[in-house]
Amino acid sequence: MNGDDLALLASLRAGDAAALEALMRRYSSRMYRLAYGITRNQADAEEVVQDVFVTIVRKGQTFEGRAALGSWIYRVTTNAALNKRRGKRLELETSLEEHLPGFDADGHREGDRAWVLADWSATPEHELLAGEARAVLHRALDALPGHYRAVLVLRDVEELSNEQVAQIVGESVASVKSRLHRARMALREQLTRQLGSKA
């Protein structure tokens, strides 16, 4: 474990409020990003972050000698967020298969020429993160299964390696890579349906 984390946990065990605040400064933002990315709900994400920190406050001593606190935090935050979502948001999730690219028997992408050549990548990011494009992106993120969103956030936002993400979500590296690729393709397909004709 990181020496700073060990020292902070030791101080926390002694009831040091400054140590708790230092741990919050170090970890709460990334916990919230991950929890929100999975639950897609502010109140649920807040509960997840709170529950994980309560565990740290109450059971700080049990972390000693374990792997990095950061990895543990990512793991329990992921699990808590997936559990939170499991009961509430299944109705929003659609089959990923219907948003993956289709191919002809000869391996070419299905669709007319305008569809397969659609390239909206030159549109500035600030335009794509506003208005109808933003709504499409957020609906598409909502519709992804929670396990896919967890991988998307851990890899593309937190910028962890495939191996680190595999450890956190308890899956193989191959499974993490497959989920990441399929999630990106499903989002791309839905954005292209909205933006392709305007590019």
Binding site: Y32, R33, Y36, G37, W120, S121, T123, E125, L128, L129, R134, L137, H138, L141, L152, V153, D156, V157, A183, R184, L187, R188, L191
Partner: peptide, 12 residues
Amino acid sequence: KTRDLAAAANRV
């Protein structure tokens, strides 16, 4: 671009 946009949207 999709990868970058999703990351930006998730950077809350």
